[in-house]
């Protein structure tokens, strides 16, 4: 019976200095090494497709990122995925890209998402439409990621829409921005992140890191400006399925930097898939030692089944259980 009274999406009690009632913010503010993971959105209208993928990830991560048509490819929307996941008690990070919606739509979505129990929002610019499966689409970009952060912060802290109209119950969300330390202008990337933090970013998730020396340089600049004390940095990692895919990603996915040495390492190995997994584990272990890094963000495109293994082998979770993972018996009554 008690199961029925358990509301998995209910926010946690408010803690002073916290902007959300979410678990991710608690984990980070408690000084724990956080793990987030990206859920590959289904090309289907079946909620089971979302739940099956989320269950695998939730065993090893503190929050699940719901992507917003990443790569400008059409999939189930981030709002839709968040709606399903929050009902089942998962902690989610809703990604909002500026590519597809204007300011009116986005502000509405922020309120809707917060009402559903979304506690974390990641503000992204979004890949250009040319990168996706429908390059003939109209790119919106009414906001950019920085002005979007500022807008949502205003909604939360001042309780106002952009127009100044009052929001009766503001959305209590933990705000994030993205960083890509691996593409030009390299010298200014850290300053650019400082700007996002000034606009409201409280956590930063980065693009895939396959080049640790480059990340170290970036983090040194971050520390120089004290940004690691103003926001939490979660570094992106992901297993490469093969050297062929690595080459393809490097030339076709915007903003992905993979050094030749990494591809050579993959090519030399007998089992490329296993090597890709080991590479991800090695990267995590190197990354976690860098000062100012507060966690990792795992993006395992079509390889969710490996995330568990990678996280456990890397030892970043230590003996910690991800906070309040949903129980399998959690009543889910959405499937038709």
């Amino acid at each position: 019976m008690s199961e029925l009274h358990f509301d998995p999406a209910a926010p946690l009690p408010h803690l002073p200095g916290h902007s959300s009632g979410g678990r991710l913010e608690r984990i980070l503010r408690a000084g724990k090494f956080a793990v987030t993971a990206e859920l590959n959105p289904p090309d289907s209208a079946d909620p089971r497709d979302v739940y099956d993928r989320a269950l695998v990830l939730s065993e090893v991560c503190d929050a699940i990122n719901a992507t917003d048509a990443s790569g400008a490819n059409c999939h189930m929307s981030s709002v839709g995925i968040c709606s399903l996941l929050t009902r089942a008690g998962y902690a989610v990070i809703m990604q909002i890209s500026c590519r597809d919606r204007n300011r009116i739509a986005i502000q509405g979505d922020v309120l809707g998402a917060a009402a559903m129990g979304v506690q974390n929002i990641l503000c992204l610019t979004g890949d250009g439409v040319q990168a996706g499966d429908q390059p003939e689409a109209k790119p919106v970009f009414d906001f950019d990621s920085t002005s979007l952060l500022k807008c949502i912060r205003g909604m939360r802290d001042e309780g106002k829409f952009l127009s100044g109209r009052k929001i009766t119950v503001p959305p209590r969300v933990f705000l994030g921005g993205a960083a890509n330390p691996f593409v030009p202008p390299l010298d200014h990337r850290a300053i650019h992140i400082g700007k996002k933090i000034a606009a409201g970013a409280q956590f930063i998730q980065t693009q895939y890191c396959y080049d640790v020396p480059m990340l170290r340089k970036f983090m040194a600049k971050v520390r120089e400006q004290g940004l690691h004390e103003k926001a939490f940095f979660l570094i992106g990692v992901g297993p490469l399925p093969s050297s062929k895919t690595a080459r393809w990603m490097r030339s076709n996915v915007p903003g992905v930097h993979i050094p030749d040495a990494v591809i050579e390492r993959m090519e030399k190995s007998k089992n490329e898939k296993a090597e890709g997994k080991q590479l991800a584990i090695d990267l995590i272990q190197e990354i976690k030692e860098i000062e100012g890094v507060h966690g990792i963000h795992v993006m395992a495109y079509r390889q969710e089944e490996f995330v568990n293994e990678i996280i456990h082998a890397s030892g970043v979770m230590k003996n910690r259980q991800p906070s309040r993972a949903p129980r399998p018996e959690t009543p889910i009554s959405i499937s038709a």
Partner: peptide
């Protein structure tokens, strides 16, 4: 900028400092 970004570059800048959307153009923010 094809994305009309007013606060800095996106994460898609090419290694040579050119634009993600228009590869022949240098990134406006670089």
């Amino acid at each position: 900028c094809p994305k009309t970004l007013r606060n800095g570059p996106c994460g898609g800048v090419r290694p040579n400092g050119h634009c993600e959307v228009k590869p022949e153009m240098k990134c406006v923010w670089v």
